[in-house]
Design a protein around this nucleic acid. Structure first.
Length: 823
DNA sequence: ATCGTCGATTTTTTT
DNA sequence: AATCGACGAT
């Protein structure tokens, strides 16, 4: 029996599989390949150093990945702790873990299945001191980055050279994704260019401040792990020894730093170091090869270059395109059969994506038949479009489709407004996934800053945030005084606060500062485990996260300030803070051994898609980016207009329009049975109403596939719906285009004033107070005209009228706010 | 130090 | 339309 030391658990020795090298493997259980097509089966069963699975949308890649992992373990070729699977979101990780557990049962525990960022944090916290970090380092999000850069740019007067926090942030992120640091940038910088010199200074200061605060930004999490492995090969060897099988999902969206990290993980360990490791008590039996070294881990990547949509964040499509060159002898398996969508949906997707040149030809197909036609609709305004979506959702729901099986996608978060307004009015249960997140609310960030300040006393950003929140009379002057006192005496901001007595500030201010410092100290004391806990290396005896939070909220006066405020919005803010307390209670209950730092880490790394609750009975609204990897019975793609998809901003970027097309492709392929494409002819931007043109991608879909309820050509300037052949030719090429295909979307060039066709569904909202309606009442609605109430449901402000309109058909309306009057 | 008003600026997508 | 920052009044 071979024993393998698990670096995760230095005290725990685990049993290793019976055989790990040479000889015939036990045949993987056939239940793992039953029902798979030949390609899928090959992807599960192939054994070798490198495997690329080119998995078209809906081709069952998660199934292949989970079965492959299960097969490795069941055949005793690998121990669970030797598996490292990287997914794109925590939700995908959780799902993969669950599915592997379903295949293997208890045997699945010990695997690392997580996102790049979570895995790196786990490694970095463990090895923090090697690279001069506190193991309680803070993770800065983009808002934090922006705050710091804003201060730096102001101090350096860098705005005179055209620097903005956003531009500096983008540039720093780009550099870090390429594994460039301040030194390497300095070496290549042109010292004659004042702009580059200034940027270098910004970059230098930014790096220094994060260092001093013991903080890392998102990009650092990856790059610092790479640096760690490169600077400390012995540390790297521990992980190279442990992880024998690396599996990476969504490989087309990896950036250079992530690629470099994968390469580090898959490096072999030379014999000399193996000998050294053995001398230090690291068990390597069962993983060495004939030469005495540890061979590089096997690598499986899954991806689809047609779904690469993160170039803006440094994703390098070459990682997948050049995989075979990077890993000689790599096996490639192509999965083209689709198990998700109808052929009509797939034909549309194939047609659209085939317009991207420079791609490997790939055609999705299904054996399940054509299915329903795709439905198209052109609204007059965004609200009109939203009303179409709401109506169709209601009619799907009446036909038996659950709300949770329906999703609405859009390109930009701003587009949620019109959709939400109409959905609220229509009493449609929905949830916006991502968007303005709970943890981005100011009051939540304040409360979190208290926790961060306790967990990581070096974090100046968090301290400065809470210094005068709630108001304690500590203004910018005092803040600056503290900061410079700290600077001059080589103290941290926190230490300066403790020493505030000697600064000669006003007595009131001084006492406010020391009181806060004491509260933080007391909270920090609550987190120290008991002697027994320390001895056992556990968190035993430390206060729960929720208790620390409640202590901080009460003693800092934050919660009282919100409750006693005259600002009516503060009531909601207080409720949000209560919700945060409830979340920490949940966290404590679900993770009894976890620390405050664990909680902060989890919060930092939640992805938009992680918020999805499969059990909720609501329609999901999300961006096209968030939609990647998900699937729904019915999908609505909205805002299919030039300037939105493709987005205006993408036009100037190389490869922009092609990436936007992939985004459209990703959206289409999320749909299982029903696909709805919609757009508006006018859209409000910055408060101004602008005329919108149909997206160029719409015409790439073969005409017969779409049933236009109201086509762009039909939606005339007067708001009428004169039926007109989709491909009716109009002389002169409307909209000044020569492209004949565009004409099927043409509208009359002499567009009438906007006011005339903004007469459809509007954003009108009113407060009807306690208007009472009952079945049988006649009402008039601003947009839908007259109708008869058939039923009233719900209570209080949520009362809903079900109305049969004379011309507009059946609708549900939230009585309190619908623009209606009783007749 | 705090509060209120005016004007500028904003929207791409996210771990 | 709405948020954010600068500036001036209290």
């Amino acid at each position: 029996m071979t024993l393998i030391l698990d670096p995760d658990d230095p005290a725990g020795w685990r049993e290793a599989p019976a055989t790990t090298s040479g000889g015939a493997h036990a045949a993987p259980g056939s239940h793992l390949t039953d029902g798979l097509n030949p390609e899928q089966r090959e992807a599960v069963e192939y054994r070798g150093q490198a495997l690329l699975i080119v998995a078209g949308a809906g081709s069952g890649k998660t199934r292949v990945l989970t079965h492959r992992i299960a097969s490795l373990i069941e055949s005793r070729e690998a121990w669970p702790s030797q598996i490292l699977a990287i997914t794109f979101t925590n939700k995908a990780a959780a799902e993969m873990r669950e599915r592997v557990e379903n295949l293997l049962g208890e045997a699945a525990s010990g695997m690392w299945i997580s996102t790049f960022h979570s895995a790196c944090v786990r490694i970095l916290r463990r090895e923090a001191e090697a690279i001069g970090l506190s193991s309680t380092f803070t993770i800065y999000d983009s808002a934090d980055q922006r705050t710091i850069l804003k201060r730096i740019i102001k101090e350096l007067d860098a705005d005179t050279l055209g620097f903005t926090p956003a531009s500096a942030q983008a540039k720093i992120s780009k550099l870090k994704n390429e594994l460039a640091d301040v030194e390497s940038y300095a070496r290549n910088a042109n010292t004659n260019d004042p702009q580059e010199v200034m940027f270098l200074e910004i970059f230098r200061q930014y790096t220094r401040r994060l260092r001093e605060a013991s903080a890392l930004d998102f990009d650092d999490l990856i790059s610092e792990t790479v640096y760690l492995f490169r600077a400390f090969p012995k540390v790297a060897s521990l992980y190279q020894r442990r992880f024998r099988h690396i599996l990476v999902d969504e490989y087309q969206d990896t950036n250079h730093a992530q690629y470099a990290l994968i390469r580090e993980f898959t490096q072999p360990v030379p014999r000399d170091r193996v000998v050294e490791m053995e001398q230090h008590g690291v068990n390597v039996r069962g993983v060495t090869d004939a030469a005495g070294g540890i061979p590089g881990a096997s690598l499986t990547v899954v991806g689809d270059s047609d779904q690469s949509i993160y170039a803006f964040r440094g994703a390098d499509i070459r990682n997948i395109v050049e995989f075979e060159r990077d890993f000689p002898g790599a096996k490639v398996v192509l999965l083209e059969q689709n198990y998700r969508s109808t052929q009509n949906i797939l034909s549309a997707a194939n047609a659209v994506i085939s317009n991207n040149f420079d791609r490997k030809e790939k055609k999705l197909w299904t054996a399940d038949g054509d299915g329903d036609q795709i439905v198209g609709y052109t609204g007059y305004t965004a609200h009109d479009e939203a009303q179409f979506v709401a109506d169709e959702i209601e009619s799907l729901h009446r036909a038996g489709v659950a709300y949770r099986d329906i999703a609405v996608f859009y390109r930009t978060n701003a587009q949620t407004r019109a959709l939400e307004e109409i959905f609220v009015r229509s009493a449609l249960p929905y949830r916006v996934v991502g968007g303005t997140k709970f943890y981005e609310r100011a009051e939540i960030k304040d409360a979190m800053a208290y926790l961060i300040a306790v967990a990581n006393p070096l974090d100046e950003l968090a301290l400065r945030r809470i210094l005068n929140t709630p108001k304690r009379g500590i203004g910018p002057a005092t803040e600056t005084a503290l900061a410079s006192f700290a600077e001059q005496n080589g103290l941290s901001f926190r230490q300066a606060m403790r020493a505030a007595d000697g600064l000669g500030l006003g007595p009131k201010v001084t006492s406010a500062i020391t009181t806060l410092a004491n509260v933080l100290d007391e909270a920090a004391a609550m987190l120290v485990p008991s002697a027994a806990g320390i001895a056992a290396g556990t968190n035993e005896g430390a206060s729960k996260v929720s208790d620390v939070l409640v202590f901080l909220l009460e003693r800092s006066g934050l919660i009282d300030a919100l409750r006693n405020s005259r600002d009516p919005q503060d009531e909601t803010r207080a409720e949000n803070v209560e919700e945060l307390v409830a979340q920490t209670r949940d966290f404590d209950r679900e993770n009894p051994q976890a620390t405050l730092v664990d909680f902060l880490t989890q919060v930092s790394l939640v992805a938009a898609a992680d918020e999805l609750d499969d059990a909720s009975g609501t329609v999901s609204l999300m961006t096209l980016h968030t939609a990647k990897g998900l699937e729904y019975h019915a999908v609505f793609l909205t805002g299919l207009e030039e300037g939105l998809l493709p987005h205006q901003m993408s036009a100037s970027e190389p490869g922009g329009p092609a990436e936007e097309r992939r985004l459209f492709y990703v959206g289409i392929t999320r749909a299982r049975k029903r696909l709805f494409l919609s757009l508006a002819m006018s859209r409000a931007q910055f408060g101004e109403v602008a005329v919108a043109m149909p997206s160029r991608y719409l015409q790439e879909i073969p005409e017969g596939l779409i049933d236009w309820r109201q086509s762009p050509g039909m939606a005339t300037s007067r708001g009428g719906t004169q039926p007109r052949a989709l491909n009716a030719r109009r002389p002169g090429g409307a909209w000044g285009t020569r492209d004949r295909d565009l004409e099927r979307f043409s509208v009359t060039k002499s567009a009438a004033p906007k006011a005339e066709w903004a007469n459809r569904v509007t954003g009108t909202v009113r407060d009807n107070g306690d208007l009472t309606l009952e079945a049988g009442d006649r009402i008039r609605h601003v947009d839908f005209g007259e109708g008869r109430v058939t039923q009233v449901t719900g209570e209080g402000t949520k009362r809903i009228a079900h109305v049969n309109f004379d011309t507009a058909g059946q609708k549900k309306l939230l009585i309190k706010i619908a623009p209606i009057e009783k007749l």
